[in-house]
Nucleic acid binder design. Structure first.
Lengths: 190, 190
DNA sequence: CCAATTATAGACAAGTTTGTCTATATTTTT
DNA sequence: AAAAATATAGACAAACTTGTCTATAATTGG
């Protein structure tokens, strides 16, 4: 059995904290090692490079995100309520991390197209989130023939992503609150 | 009179190109100097530090942005049309720069709270853009007492910002096109 | 209990980074 | 034309980066 707090886990936990709060490029390997109390050779044993550590940071970030959002939507029954729960979870998550924004959007600004494997993680994560939310919108608008569910779904997704970025800029939850309110309105009376 | 293509101008033009395309942290002073054909001492003569160069890069970016958007909105008369023109300009600008996204959002991910003066430029730019767009929304909804113009205005602003970020991720204009369509819908029949 | 695996500590290489400083050359201005 | 301001080229410092390698210690499985 793998140790619960072995070097690998400590590295990943520390790297996650530092990459998210300081940024990927502003976080050196040595700082991670020092704060995780791990030897340098152990890092290069478990992760082949800093780039790979970044990729696994994103992979785990995606798992954690969807695990969280499914917990929140799972507590609701109606699709429209599940969609609102997505915004509630976002508000909770952004506040919990002191408005650091989205790990994926942030790292995209840092690495650009330098790391194709990171870009792959980013676009896959966002694509999955988009489909996830659009699924609720479709169900909520089912039978409503005169409404373009695809269009409304993407609009709500854009509101969601806009709320993430603006919460970071304004260091406040108003973007999420207003985005949710508009999303709810769009599902009711379009 | 200041020279049109003196060292200062060449530095700023090159730094703008490189900061935007490669990122701020991925662009070293030496690369800027080499591509601008300028001596290192000249850079530190005109700009005291890389940080200050970054601040002026943002200041100029804001001027250029608003100069551009005002050209596009100035060609329209009705407030609703002016608002649509904001989206048209965005689509044009993002495509022109090959979907590099927003200079301000990008650099925020890189420097975080490390540079308070940069953060000041960022929040001022976004705050001004928000008010600029909300002004059109207010005028377009004037007399429409049963509609909360502030709420609709912020929603459209969030759609706008979401479209910027998602266009970068998907390397496509669909986010802007859909955001504009939704914005137009919100001004017509809410 | 002993052998194999895993972790540690840290020196080291080769390359970055920003910023300073000197010395020389080119423009501008008076 | 002389004096002052501006630009150039590049050496240099001090600190940082990722990644490799060696030698020793701790832990684990059979």
């Amino acid at each position: 059995m793998t140790k619960k707090f072995g070097p690998r886990e400590r590295i990943l936990e520390t790297a996650t904290r530092l990459f998210h709060s300081q940024g990927y490029n502003n976080t050196g390997i040595n700082q991670i090692l020092a704060e995780a109390n791990v030897a340098k050779a152990s890092l290069y044993q478990h992760f082949g490079s800093k780039d790979e550590l970044g990729i696994i940071y994103l992979k785990e970030g995606r798992e954690e995100w969807f695990s969280g959002i499914e917990q929140w939507t799972g507590a609701k029954k109606a699709p429209a309520q599940k969609l609102s729960a997505c915004f509630d979870f976002l508000e909770y998550a952004l506040q919990k991390d002191d408005y650091l924004g989205c790990k994926f959007i942030n790292i995209l600004s840092e690495v650009g197209n330098n790391s194709p494997l990171m870009f792959k993680e980013i676009i896959e994560h966002k694509g999955k989130l988009r489909q996830y939310m659009k699924g609720f919108v479709e169900k909520a608008l089912e039978g409503n023939a005169d409404v373009d569910a695809d269009f409304v779904g993407d609009s709500i997704y854009l509101l969601y992503e806009g709320a993430i970025v603006e919460s970071k800029i304004y260091r406040d939850t108003w973007p999420v609150k207003k985005a949710r309110k508009m999303a709810e309105m769009l599902l009711k009376k379009v």
